[in-house]
Structures are given as structure tokens and as C-alpha cells.
Write a protein that binds this DNA or RNA. Structure first.
Lengths: 332, 332
DNA sequence: ATGAAAGCGCTAACAC
DNA sequence: GTGTTAGCGCTTTCAT
């Protein structure tokens, strides 16, 4: 690896001049610029990022923290983040916390000692204190698919409540009489909003009470387990709004084993629109979120903060869309 | 952020002493060590990784290059890599090439200027020249789930050919008469080995010829598309060995639409054992690879090379296992 | 317009 | 045992 000094020597100028040319800062005579560029070419020189980082107190890299990789949502968001990052000369550290707060803390610590320029967060283990600390260290943060209420942090969300309503209303529209919901964990904003959306539609119904509400984490296993409980508690159930697609897949599996025909005897609506939800038999009706775009938007916003182009705190609520109707009223 | 100098001042010693203590090198009196540790504690000091990197010409981070994130194999391998990395104080740069050589080259370039300590590669875009260059730069490389033939690089593979044989033999065992194979791309070692495994079993059969062989990339779409072609070309097909689970899922979908009952009329065997393959209806029979372990092993080997504990080039061929038989001979 | 030199935070040879 | 100091490769004031 050749260094800036080698280039300077080769071109017969000082390192300062070379540095100016690399960074396009300061004035340099066109003539010397050409000479230097030729030298750079000749030595196939690339600036050392680590040294640049030390000098600039920044790294041109950002951290993207996700709670898991087994939900395909995250790889897809990550693609969005990376595409924008790469186009702007940034590297992405993809960090998987496996849902453990200690891992999150480890990453956060690591970020500091790496001059990380910014962080995109999606972890329910984040506390207000963490964000406060990050703010103190001047590290911009954007949350994606997750918010911490009352925190001054830009967040990229979708219309979870409206999505929940749409899903549930769709079940009503296709003729379901008894509609249950299997949602995510108690404290999670997304999960709760979606549940409220469900409640908005069914709370007036005479049959409705708490026993139509199931909860668990956003996993296939939850869907499978809770659906079975539900089938034995309420054999009359004929529609389920699942809090996400993984749950919906679990429900589908449970229905199959229970001998309930989908969608004829049991209609299911998921949430997310992950690729896998279209590959089941039958393909799942679901509320599609703009997953990839959430990633690109998050990174774009983060860049705005890092480069101080726009440091206002925003809360996005992106549109969602019902896709792949399994069944229409006509089928009945 | 406090620096090593701050700690030195606080403890009334020199920076060298602090450095020694941080790195556990050289001799220090137990007494001064305690004082320094107290100072470190008090200032909540963490060594600056960037500065360490510049000084040591290394970064304690490694790159893991994957061709895609939509095959759940990779997130799972990545988990294995990360767990071992983290346990040993290394950071992992997860890099997705999206199957594009230019992206791969970009990452490789980036690695150099980041003092990356080692690289785990899985990209069919890697050429011999790339490995040669890396070797010249003294960057250890381990390939996972992929090899470059005649290259002196440690690689972690599974028994692809044997797996192919097992899959195909299983189809024979459960009574299939006409067994097709839908495999991966021409140049891919894995795909080819699995295909040969298939050929090992069927090449003697009177009905067998090239028309029972389909190819495409390792995706659901390939499985779906090629299976349909196959159904119209050979309506008598009653067993398909898919080159990987994604293809198998595509086949399943095609079979469903074509009205072929699985597994009664068409038996399917996949390859990989990704979680998704167990969630289909019916769950797919498949050749399970130790995915997570491939990750841990790759990282362990890479560490051996980085830390020069063991620099011999090895070629692992891990065992595979047939799981989730859909159907047994008895069913017939 | 260009160069000299200090400094980013840390490590390691060398001196005591 | 411990301290001094010269780098690691780059950026950036401050001169010129």
C-alpha cells in the first residue's frame, strides 16, 4: 500500500497538496493537480480510511442495529440502507442483537470507539438513556420501524393502526363473523398500534371480548401455538388478523393441522408483505409495507443529520396497502 | 471521550504504562496496575479502536461477503460467524454483493483501506486473481459454502455430492419411478456436485436422459418456472430433487397449481434445511446442512489464520442429513 | 498556490 | 518496572 507521502514524493509536491486534491478542498493549480493525479494513478493509491478516520474524528460508516435476522423484514430494510449508504460513500456495520440488551450495549460502545458517524436503530431494547447518551456524543440516530414515545428522534414508521383497521375491515368485508387477533408483545409500539386498529373495527361487535386477543412475539411459533389455543377456545372463529406475516404463517400451519380450510373456513390476513408470505399455499393476504423504502428513507434521513443538511426531527408514517385478497365476498 | 493521556495523567503514570495494562503486555507492578485500572474506571475510558487500528495496522474486524440476503442461509451463517467473532473481540462487516462483481470489488478495496484482518467469502464472483491479491496483501481468507478449484484457500463445504445421492436415493426408496432434478447454475461448484449426486443414482435407469435435468439460479422462481416446464414435458414425473430449499418451495407451489398432490403424487426433496423449508405445507423433506456451524467453523478457521495459530489450508466437507421424510414406502 | 509541522489516540522500541 | 518518543497515514492551520 502506497501512502500519501509516496504520492507526494512521486509528484514532487507536499503531502498537503495531495490531501487538498484528494478532498477537493482549497486551491490548487490545475497543472499540479494533473501531475498529482497521474502519480495517484501510477501508484494506484487509495487513501487509508483508518488514518482519515483518526484525523477527521469520523469514519464514513454507520451502524444498523437489528434485533434479528430471522425475520426477512430486516435483510430487506438493510438492503435499502446499504444501497443509499454505498451511493454516498458510507459503509454499513450490520449489527444483530439477537434481542439481547447486552449485545446492543456492546455495539453502542463499539460505535463510539470507531467514530461511527450515525446509527439506524431497530431494537426494542433501546432505552431513553441510550438515545440521550448518543445525543450527548453528537451521534445522529434514526429509528426504523420502531419509535420510543416522547423521544426526539427521527423515526420511519408505517401506518400501523390504519393497517390494522384495513386488515380487520377486509375480514369483515369478506363475510367473517368471528374475527380474532394474534399480535406481538405488550410493550411494542407496532404491535400495539396494529391491535388497536383491530379493536377499532371489532370493539362494537356483540361477541367481542378479550378472549379474542392473543399475543406473543412476532414469530411463526407464536402464530402456530396461539392459533391452536384459539381454535379450541373459539371453534367458531372464521377470521384471524395476524400481527405480522410470520405469525400468519404459523396460523396457516395450525389451521392446516386442525383441519380448517383456508381461506374457505378461515380467512387470514398478515402484516408486512415479506416475500415468504406470497409463497405459502395459499398465498397470504397481507398488509404490505414499503420495506425496502423504509431502509432507503432511514439512511437518507440519517445522511441529512450527519451532514447537517436537515436536522429537524421527523416522524414518518408511510402508507400501507392490502395485497393478495384470498377470498372475496363473492366466494361465499 | 477520554484518551489514554487523560488516564495516564489521572493515574500519575505514563501513557506507555497505561497501554501495557490495556493490552496485558510487558511487566507492570500490581500496585500501579490497580491505580491505573481505577483511573480507567473513573474516566470510563475505552481505547479508541481507530487509533489502535492505525498504530497496529489492523482493525480487529473481519469482512463477511455474501451474494444475497434473500436466501436465509446467509443470515444464519452470519449468526455463526458473528457469535465467534464477538466472543473473540472482533467486529464483522457484513457485505452483500447482490451478486454483482463490481460490488465485490468495491468491498475488497474498502477492506484494504480499513486494515481488515481477514475475510470470509461466499461469492461466485470471486476470481483466482482476487485471492492472489489478497494473499499478497497478507489478508487471510476463508471460503464458506463455496470453493474455487485449485486455489490454496481454506474452505468450509458440505458433502454436496453425497447429499445429492441421499436425496435421490430417498426418492427411489419411497417408490418414485421418474425422478427429475432442478439444480443451480452451471458454474457453481455446489450446484454441480449436487447434480452429480443425482446422476450417480439415476444414470443407470432406462428412462434417464438430459431432459430430466433443469437448471436455474437457487431461487423460488427458478423452482416454480422450471417445475412447470418439467410437468408439461414429463407428466409422468413423480419425484423431484431440488438443488436447494428455495427451488423446492417453488416446485411445491408449481405442483399445487398444476394439481399434483404432494407428497402422494409428487415427492420433493430439497437441500439446505433452512427454517422456511419446515414451514411449508407439507413440510419439505430436505438434506440438512449444519448452516450455523459452517459460520462458526469459518470464523474459527479465520481466527487461526489471523492469529497464526494454524495456517494450514484445510478443506472441510461437513456431514449432511436427510430430515423430515414426507412419505415412506409404506404409504404406497 | 504550496509547504512545514502539529496533532488525531495509540503502540512499541529504546532508554533508564 | 516505567517513561520518552517516534511513528501509523492523514488533515489542517499557519506561514510563505
Amino acid at each position: 500500500m502506497s501512502t500519501i507521502r509516496d504520492v507526494a514524493k512521486e509528484a514532487g509536491v507536499s503531502v498537503a497538496t495531495v490531501s487538498r486534491i484528494i478532498n477537493g478542498k482549497g486551491k490548487v493549480k490545475k497543472e499540479t493537480e494533473d501531475i498529482v493525479k497521474a502519480a495517484i494513478e501510477k501508484l494506484s493509491y487509495t487513501p487509508n480510511k483508518v488514518a482519515q478516520g483518526l484525523s477527521n474524528q469520523r469514519s464514513y460508516s454507520i451502524g444498523f442495529v437489528v434485533p434479528s435476522m430471522s425475520n426477512p423484514m430486516f435483510p430487506e430494510i438493510a438492503r435499502g440502507v446499504e444501497d443509499v449508504a454505498q451511493a454516498n460513500g458510507y459503509q454499513v456495520f450490520l449489527c444483530n442483537t439477537d434481542g439481547k440488551r447486552e449485545k446492543l450495549l456492546g455495539y453502542l460502545e463499539n460505535f463510539k470507539s470507531h467514530y461511527i458517524d450515525g446509527i439506524i436503530l431497530n431494537s426494542h431494547n433501546v432505552h431513553h438513556d441510550d438515545l440521550e447518551q448518543l445525543k450527548q456524543h453528537n451521534v445522529p440516530v434514526v429509528m426504523v420501524d420502531r419509535v420510543l414515545e416522547n423521544s426526539e428522534t427521527t423515526s420511519i414508521m408505517v401506518q400501523n393502526r390504519k393497517g390494522g383497521q384495513m386488515a380487520t375491515q377486509h375480514l369483515v368485508d369478506v363475510g367473517c363473523q368471528y374475527i380474532a387477533h394474534i399480535g406481538g408483545l405488550e410493550g411494542e409500539y407496532n404491535a400495539t398500534q396494529r391491535m388497536w386498529g383491530y379493536c377499532d373495527i371489532v370493539s362494537g361487535k356483540p361477541w367481542f371480548d378479550q378472549t379474542w386477543l392473543g399475543r406473543g412475539d412476532f414469530s411463526v411459533d407464536t402464530g402456530y401455538r396461539v392459533a391452536k389455543e384459539l381454535f379450541s377456545r373459539h371453534p367458531e372463529v372464521d377470521g384471524i388478523f395476524a400481527g405480522n406475516d410470520l405469525i400468519a404463517i404459523g396460523v396457516l400451519k395450525a389451521a392446516y393441522e386442525w383441519g380448517k380450510k383456508v381461506p374457505e373456513e378461515l380467512a387470514i390476513v398478515g402484516f408486512d408483505g415479506i416475500e415468504m408470505s406470497g409463497l405459502t399455499l395459499p398465498p397470504l393476504t397481507t398488509i404490505e409495507q414499503p420495506i425496502y423504502e423504509m431502509g432507503t428513507l432511514a439512511m437518507t434521513e440519517l445522511l441529512n443529520h450527519i451532514e447537517k443538511k436537515d436536522v429537524t426531527v421527523k416522524r414518518y408514517e408511510l402508507d400501507v396497502k392490502l395485497i393478495r385478497e384470498m377470498r372475496t365476498k363473492i366466494d361465499l
